[in-house]
Structures are given as structure tokens and as C-alpha cells.
């Protein structure tokens, strides 16, 4: 009984990953066909989001597959990462400078994006609170 359930679940995940793959393939086709600067995977993501929001496809069809892929997301990067092996120059003196530049710039980017969004978020929250206060005030009046 339990084995049957596991097999069923595995089949379900495989089929759902196939659905996600189909969206990726469509995105890729659109990317090539129209020569868009945005890559196929991002176009596929946008299509998928639109389909989910407008209920064109039910969430149930991709839920398990998406969770499965996302839980292994870091694993999927490893083959591409191992490609550094082809750039031994990166580990020499000149490479150290390039590394430093990219790391410093990443620190700046992260801090700037985080600070800006947190600041703007606080403004939105304040506005929301004000609205809430006003509503409760008018109700009590």
C-alpha cells in the first residue's frame, strides 16, 4: 500500500515537472522566434504566472513538481559551477583583482537593494496603519 503511494507520488512529480518543462520550452521558442533579449526560462515563468493567476491551469497541476524542483534548486547549479575549472587564470594575481571587484560590488548591491526596499516597505506599512486608524476612527464615530 505504502509502496504504491510512493510510486504514484513519483509519477505525479515527474508529470508535473514535464508540465513545467513544457512552459520552459514554449518560453524558449518565443525567445528564439521574436529574438527577445529576455531568456526563455524567464518568459516561461511569466507565462506560468499568468496562467495560474487567471486560473487557466490549476495550481494542483504543478504544486508537487514545483516544490520538488525548488527543494533541489542548489543541486541544479552544481554542474554549471564546476565550469570554473576551465578558468585557471581566475586563480592567478589578475584574477584576485577581478574577484575583489565583483565581491565589493556585490556587497554594495546587496546593502543598497536591502536598505532601499526596507525603507520603502516601512513607508507602505505606515500608510497602511494610518488607513487602519482612520477606518476604526470613522467606525467609532
Amino acid at each position: 500500500m505504502k509502496e504504491q503511494y510512493l510510486i504514484l507520488k513519483a509519477v505525479k512529480i515527474i508529470l508535473q515537472v514535464a508540465v513545467l518543462y513544457a512552459f520552459f520550452a514554449v518560453g524558449e521558442a518565443v525567445h528564439l522566434l521574436f529574438g527577445l533579449p529576455v531568456p526563455g526560462s524567464i518568459i516561461g515563468l511569466l507565462f506560468m504566472l499568468i496562467c495560474l493567476i487567471f486560473n487557466i491551469i490549476p495550481v494542483k497541476i504543478i504544486e508537487n513538481g514545483a516544490n520538488f524542483l525548488l527543494s533541489f534548486l542548489p543541486l541544479l547549479f552544481i554542474p554549471a559551477m564546476a565550469g570554473v575549472i576551465n578558468y585557471p587564470a581566475l586563480f592567478s594575481g589578475n584574477g584576485a583583482i577581478l574577484l575583489l571587484v565583483v565581491v565589493m560590488s556585490t556587497i554594495v548591491t546587496m546593502a543598497a537593494a536591502g536598505m532601499a526596499s526596507q525603507l520603502l516597505e516601512q513607508r507602505v506599512n505606515k500608510r497602511k496603519e494610518k488607513k487602519k486608524c482612520r477606518n476604526s476612527l470613522s467606525r467609532s464615530l
Partner: peptide, 18 residues
């Protein structure tokens, strides 16, 4: 083969967004 799952994984990010 592992790399080829990156495309559908990016599409799968639509799920948490949704």
C-alpha cells in the same frame, strides 16, 4: 542532465510568486 532542469526550475518559481 542536471543542468537541463534549471530551465523548468526557473519556471517553478512562478509557484511561490503565485
Amino acid at each position: 542532465w542536471i543542468n537541463s532542469l534549471l530551465g523548468p526550475a526557473v519556471v517553478a518559481l512562478a509557484y511561490p510568486l503565485y
